[in-house]
Design a protein around this nucleic acid. Structure first.
Lengths: 254, 254
DNA sequence: CGTGAAGTTGAGTATGCTCAACGGTGGTGG
DNA sequence: CCACCACCGTTGAGCATACTCAACTTCACG
């Protein structure tokens, strides 16, 4: 198996965010590249050069950033909004491999091509780093390379967790696990306890969990009837009423 | 989410193997660390120091190398035999996330702990690099770090492929995809065309594909009846008779 | 030659899918 | 401003795929 030199990277959970910080370089406040660079005492001039080489991208809900197999030119960093990355079978079945948010990187490259497709879930702002510039920068600053390595390995761990879910868990267990993941992310982002914002449709949730829209809907309704969660009329907001119960379900203990 | 500094790595497909080479350092002929190091013109003395810090490990079929959650101390390189890595639910359901062979690295670490369990499929020889030594070595030689990064990203790509399989493919599609993967690997290792050695049990195949033993067995029998493959009486050797047909099945085109 | 693990095959079943109908909602244009 | 329409979500009925349970065979190994 050949390894491409230009193979690039991805991740979901990035650096701890400085939410209140109104910085001067708006697109890169949360970007992990910048985060590592700042901690590594890299010359501002070097950073500015990298940023100058990049461009900002704005996407509307439903717009595609790139498609699996496209020749890769950029590594992207999300500065606002949510994205999803997915793979498809030839006959149109979709597997969403990740939801990405503010501060996450995307653009996993294999053999010069993107390894998955990326689409905006909501209106989205991204910063695009040209791959060539990024590679040079990363190689120049080992601490940035090391940080990207940790991010990639973290991603690997999460994908393996998801493989266990897809291969071995029931529909109820999958949905419960998903809700707990959203809850954890909301907590990490400093949202109030128990409330979770759900920016994706039921169909996307199904395509992430290996289920159909209908099954996701049925399980969520059942959880509502069982007073484990309460779902807002808008369908994009939920409250977890019984976290321990949900954890038990996610682990197959009920 | 916290990133651990000691997070380490893993991969399946390593460097092209020099099969005929009877080297002097037996355990490391195929190891990708050595491979990258040799290409990078690293002083032999440095390499010897790293190898001197490591130890050889021998495992019998069925023996566990480490268990998910164990405190991580070593990065392993397989020098002979086959291993599997897996995750389990609390109630004992297993998802095998990868089969590893000669020359592959294993020991993905998260937060100081192994992220999965590892067990020998056949008698197995490994070389154990102490993590501390390895980290120092890797940081000292950027080309080695870069190689490990590519390996990790390649692993990520394969895991996402597997997520598509687990979430969206039928039993026939899964088994067909698996056979084609084995076939590709056999070809990469220079085995004769069409013949594939299957070192794992039906149960392991099921736990890798998100199926039960019985379903794997039934699908293989069906493929045999349809003259797509022929399975040896020993169950550990198969011949693919109709590769195009198998590819069609794997892609859902039949 | 006996024993246990692995594999195969069959019968019945359950989980989640398919197909269909319907209600709510938000955006758009008359 | 309101009506329309498309999209999303929900719910029901029936069904199919893969699972469970069980019996039996084969093989490796003592």
């Amino acid at each position: 198996m050949a390894f491409s030199i230009e193979t690039a990277l991805q991740l979901p959970p990035a650096a701890p965010r400085e939410t209140g910080d109104i910085g001067t370089e708006a697109p890169c406040r949360a970007c992990p590249i910048r985060h590592a660079a700042v901690r590594g005492n890299i010359a501002e001039a070097e950073l500015e050069k990298l940023f100058a080489a990049g461009t900002e991208v704005t996407l509307q809900r439903g717009q595609t950033l790139f498609t699996e197999g496209d020749a890769a030119a950029y590594l992207y960093s999300i500065s606002g909004g949510s994205m999803m990355v997915y793979k498809m079978t030839r006959d149109g079945r979709r597997q969403i491999t990740g939801f990405l948010y503010d501060g996450d990187l995307l653009g996993l490259v294999n053999d010069g091509k993107y390894a998955y497709s990326a689409e905006a879930i909501s209106s989205c702002k991204l910063f695009a780093y040209p791959l060539s510039e990024t590679e040079a920068f990363v190689q120049r600053y080992p601490q940035v390379e090391r940080r990207l390595g940790r991010i990639t390995r973290q991603e690997l761990v999460e994908n393996q967790e998801q493989m266990l879910l897809l291969g071995r868990k029931s529909a109820r267990e999958r949905v419960a696990s998903f809700l707990l993941k959203l809850l954890r992310q909301a907590k990490d982002r400093g949202k109030e306890a128990g409330a979770i914002h759900i920016p994706m449709t039921r169909e996307m949730i199904g395509d992430y969990l290996g289920l159909t829209t209908e099954t996701v809907s049925r399980v969520l309704s059942a959880f509502g009837r069982e007073k484990i969660i309460s779902v807002d009329r808008s369908c994009s907001l939920a409250h977890v009423l019984d976290v321990p119960h949900l954890k038990n379900i996610a682990e197959g203990l009920s």
